[in-house]
Amino acid sequence: MPKTSILSPTRRAMIGGALATWPVPVLAQRAPVITLLGDSITAGFGLPASAALPAQLQAELRRLGSKALIRGAGVSGDTTAGGLARVDFSVQRDTDLCLVALGGNDLLQGLDPKRTQANLEKIVARLKARNISVVLAGLQPPPVIGRAYAQEFRAVFQTVAKTQRVALYPNLLAGVAQVPSLNQSDGFHPNARGVTVIAKALAPVLVKALKA
C-alpha cells in the first residue's frame, strides 16, 4: 500500500512557502590579493617590517576602505632577470593583481635596456596567462645617468605597458627620489617617511586597478 502524507494540502503549502523564503547563508567573499613583485624598495631594505612598503600600503588601503590584502614578494638586489626567474612561484596562484616593480637594479648595473624590456614583457605575459591583472611600476633615472641611456631606459616601461596592455604607474619613487629627508643615508632607498609618500600615492592606483 502506498504511503500517504499526514499533512493536509494547506499545511504542505504553508511549509513550502516558508522554505522558499528561508534565508540562504551567504559565503564570505574572499578578499582580493595584491602581490608586490619587486626588489629592495618593495622588500623594505633598511626598515622594520612595520615601516616597509607592504605594511604601509596595507594600512593605506584600509584607510581607503579596501579589503584587499597586500603580499610582499620583494627581493633586495633583484633585477628583472631575477624577477623573471621566480615570478611563477613568488606570485602565488590566489593573486588577483600584481604590482611589477623591477628595473632599478638593471639601471644601477647599466644593463642593456633591451634586456630589461624583454624580461619585463615575459614577466607580464606570464602573469596575464594566469589571469592575474598587472600594474607596471616605472622608474625615472636620476640626473647623474647619461641622457641617452636615461631616455632609452625610461621608455622601456612605457613600451611594455603599451604592448602588453597593462596599467602603468610611471614612477614608483615619485615625490621621494632625490629628496634627502625622505631617503636613507644611501640616498636611494626611502626611509619610513618616504615609504609613506609612496604608499599614499600608489594605493588609489591599485584600488582602481582592482575595480577595473
Rank of each mutant, 00 (worst) to 15 (best):
G82T: 10
P141W: 09
L36D: 10
Q92L: 09
S8W: 09
T42W: 09
V33E: 10
L108D: 00
Q117K: 09
T10C: 06
L69Y: 12
L168G: 01
T10D: 13
A150Q: 03
P54K: 09
V87L: 01
V33T: 15
N171V: 14
L61N: 08
D112Q: 10
A101D: 11
A125Y: 03
A209H: 05
L57W: 12
Q29R: 15
A212V: 14
L36V: 08
L7S: 05
Q109K: 05
G74K: 03
V75L: 05
D106L: 07
R30I: 06
F45S: 06
P54N: 12
G104S: 06
G175C: 05
A13S: 11
H189K: 01
H189M: 02
G146T: 01
P9Q: 12
R154F: 04
S5F: 12
L139F: 13
L120Q: 03
T79K: 04
A28R: 02
L210S: 01
A81Y: 04
L64C: 00
T80A: 08
N191V: 04
R93H: 05
I123A: 05
H189L: 01
Q29C: 09
S50K: 10
E121V: 05
A125T: 03
Q151T: 07
P142G: 10
I41D: 05
Q58Y: 00
T196W: 13
S5K: 11
T42K: 07
Q109Y: 05
E152L: 00
D94P: 09
V207Q: 15
L19W: 15
P143I: 14
P25A: 01
K128Y: 00
D186F: 15
K3V: 08
V197M: 04
A68P: 02
V195Q: 09
T42I: 13
V176I: 11
R30D: 04
L19S: 10
G38T: 02
F153A: 05
P141D: 03
F188M: 13
R62D: 05
R86M: 02
G110M: 13
L107Y: 03
G138M: 08
L136C: 12
P143L: 14
L107V: 02
L210Y: 07
T10H: 09
G187K: 03
S90D: 10
L210E: 04
A129V: 02
V24N: 10
S66H: 04
R86K: 02
L69F: 13
A13N: 11
C98Q: 04
L47G: 14
G44Y: 07
D112F: 04
R154C: 08
L47D: 13
P190I: 06
R62V: 10
L206V: 04
A129D: 01
V160Y: 09
D88G: 08
D106P: 00
R115C: 06
V134M: 00
V205W: 05
A137V: 06
G187S: 01
A118S: 11
A201I: 06
M14I: 12
M1R: 14
F89K: 12
T163W: 01
S5L: 12
L107F: 08
N171S: 14
Q29F: 01
D39T: 04
D88Y: 04
D78L: 08
A68M: 11
A55L: 09
A118G: 08
T196A: 14
V87Q: 02
L111E: 03
R11M: 11
L69W: 08
N119Q: 10
E60Q: 13
G82C: 02
V134H: 00
A101C: 15
Q164A: 11
A118N: 04
P113M: 07
R11K: 13
A51W: 07
I41Q: 15
N183P: 01
T4R: 15
